[in-house]
């Protein structure tokens, strides 16, 4: 059987270019960031708004910015946007539209021996991303404030490798003033980034699997989002090829629409009987009943 090609990289490239299309940010007299009104809106993926090319706002950064401000403790605007994205696309955003996910995918393509994280470590570590979301994104910016009542964006400040890579490195490389301000925080964040990028060569998407708060949020919509996967159990021959092909280690035959599924479609391509399909819509696909042939009577 002819192997079906994975053309996801085309969408990933286009999405990365579209969300970082402010070219003067990179090629202007001095590297700077876009300051226009498009930044009123959040992009679906994890894309630092301090990236010189970014034309939209990072949803995780925006959540913390509003919560850490003096006026509001919770951002209905950003959470509503994330609900909308989650319902329309779910974690397909991670698989198709997130720049940092794409970078990890590219690094994993480097031909080296790959590591499968043991189940005992993998399973508990997957909950870390929910902790990141609840503690660092929602709670700490509201609770841990300074004398002026302002909270820091704790996830961006202490963890986010996308900010260091997309914003930190280009801005620091071009601005001596910023470079002179480098201290412990930058070295900490740069080490974290290096660790995650290195791990991405051997483990598939370690940041998405274990630490991404945005993936944790979208994962909540896996079963109900309009973009879902379906497994036709009548066609399934239990060969297990889907599970071997799944880079996110989903037990496809047990439950296909789990929060970890990023809709990459590897299972669908690996299935020899076409039992796995992508479905988009409000209603779940009804199983087709075989048509009964009218019996001929003479």
């Amino acid at each position: 059987m002819k192997k079906k090609k994975d053309s996801r990289w085309v969408t990933q490239t286009l999405a990365a270019l579209a969300t970082n299309s402010y070219l003067p940010g990179f090629f202007g007299e001095r590297i700077n960031i876009y300051k226009g009104k498009l930044k009123n809106a959040c992009v679906p993926g994890l894309n630092c708004y301090s990236c010189p090319g970014a034309i939209g706002s990072c949803p995780i950064g925006s959540l913390q910015a509003v919560a850490g401000g003096r006026k509001h403790d919770f951002s209905f605007y950003v959470v509503g946007t994330l609900i909308l994205f989650g319902m329309l696309l779910g974690r397909a955003i991670c698989g198709f539209l997130c720049l940092f996910g794409f970078i990890q995918d590219l690094l994993y393509k480097i031909p080296t021996p790959k590591i499968k994280v043991p189940h005992k470590v993998d399973k508990p570590l997957r909950y870390a991303k929910y902790l990141m979301l609840i503690v660092l994104v929602f709670i700490l910016p509201v609770v841990l404030t300074n004398a002026f009542g302002l909270g820091s964006p704790y996830f961006c400040k202490w963890v986010c490798p996308a900010g260091t890579l997309e914003g930190g490195i280009p801005l620091l490389a071009s601005d001596e003033g910023l470079r002179n301000s480098i201290g412990f925080l930058f070295y900490w964040k740069a080490s974290l980034l290096a660790l995650i990028l290195l791990a991405s060569v051997f483990i598939h998407r370690p940041f998405c699997k274990y630490f991404c708060p945005l993936g944790a949020f979208y994962g909540l919509f896996s079963k109900i989002s309009l973009w879902r996967m379906t497994l036709d159990k009548d066609k399934c021959i239990d060969c297990g090829k889907c599970e071997k092909a799944c880079p996110m280690n989903v037990a496809v035959r047990k439950d296909i629409n789990v929060p970890e599924c990023i809709r990459c479609g590897n299972c669908k391509r690996a299935c020899p009987t076409n039992a796995i399909r992508t479905q988009y819509g409000f209603r779940d696909a009804k199983r087709k009943e075989p048509k009964l042939q009218p019996t001929q009577t003479n």
Binding site: N40, A65, G69, C156, K189
Partner: peptide, 23 residues
Amino acid sequence: YRKEVAEVLKKSITICLECIGIG
């Protein structure tokens, strides 16, 4: 309605020092 959009914009059009590892 709660004018959160202005807060999002205000944060995103200035270089986020925390995000880049400075502040």
